[in-house]
Design a protein around this nucleic acid. Structure first.
Lengths: 134, 134
DNA sequence: CGGGATCCAGAACGATACTG
DNA sequence: CAGTATCGTTCTGGATCCCG
C-alpha cells in the first residue's frame, strides 16, 4: 500500500464516532480484546475456559470485553440451560475475517520486537545523560 | 493464517512487558499514534505541520506521542537551528515497514465498518427491550 | 457457573500558562 | 516555533460482594 491510500484510511478531520479506523482501534487497543480473539480463534470456548486461557483478566473485564465483541458482531454468545448453566462464545463469520489482518500486524510485532526493544533501551540510556546535572 | 499461528503470536501467559503483541498494541492502541503515523506516511513533517494535520490533538499529546514513536525507533526527529527553530519528524525505515500490516487492519476496518455499525445498533436496540420493566 | 453492582486507584488525556 | 510544567478531569480496569 502507498502512503496516499494510508491517509485515506484515517479520514483526517473525521470525528472518532464516524471514523472506521478509530472505531476498530478503540476496540482492539483495549487490554483484552485481542487476547480473547486469539482464545476463540480455534473454536468455541466457555466462559470459564476463556478465563483459564487468559488467567490475569478479571471476571468483570472478561464479561465486558466479550459483550463488546458481541455488540460489534465479532463474536456470538450461546446459553445452554444446563445445571449449572453454561455459556459458549465463538467468533462470528465476521469475527473470523479479522484474524488475517490482525495476524499480519501481530506478525510484524513479533518480527520487529527485538529492534523495538533495542531502540527503546538506547533512547532511555541517552535520556539519562541529558538528565545529567553535574 | 490459521488459528494455531494466531495463538502463538499472543504468547498466552506472558507478561505484558515481554509480549510483542501487547507491546505493539499498547502503542497503536492509544489515541493518536496511528494518526501521526499516517500523517508522516508521505514524508517528513514539521511539528506545527503535524498539528495542523491532526487538529484536535493538544501540543502536550503531540509531543508525547512523537516521543513514544521516536523511543521505539519508528520515527526520527531532526532539529534545525533556524530562527525560530524548526523540527522535522519522519518515519524511520522500521517505521515504514509497519504501514503495510497496519494498513491491512485499517482496510479491514473500512470494509467492515458498515456491518459493525449495523450489529451495534441491533444489539443496542435489543438491549432496550431487555430493560423493559412493564 | 456466569454473571451484575459498586467502589476505588491509577493512568490517560485536555486546558492553560510559561519558556528558549 | 517547539516545546515544558502543572493542574484537573475523565476513563479504564481491578477488587470485592452479591445473585439466580
Amino acid at each position: 500500500m502507498d502512503a496516499g491510500q494510508f491517509r485515506a484510511l484515517i479520514q483526517p478531520g473525521a470525528d472518532a464516532e464516524s471514523c472506521p479506523a478509530r472505531n476498530v482501534l478503540d476496540r482492539i487497543g483495549d487490554k483484552w480484546t485481542v487476547l480473547l480473539l486469539a482464545a476463540m480463534a480455534e473454536g468455541p470456548r466457555r466462559f470459564s475456559e476463556l478465563h483459564r486461557m487468559v488467567p490475569d483478566i478479571s471476571k468483570r473485564m472478561l464479561t465486558q470485553t466479550l459483550r463488546g465483541l458481541e455488540r460489534d458482531g465479532l463474536a456470538t454468545r450461546r446459553v445452554y440451560s444446563t445445571k449449572p448453566p453454561s455459556v459458549a462464545y465463538a467468533l462470528s463469520p465476521l469475527g473470523e475475517t479479522v484474524l488475517g489482518p490482525l495476524g499480519g500486524l501481530l506478525g510484524w510485532a513479533a518480527e520487529n520486537f527485538i529492534a523495538i526493544r533495542a531502540a527503546r533501551e538506547k533512547f532511555d540510556a541517552e535520556d539519562e545523560w541529558s538528565g545529567y546535572a553535574g
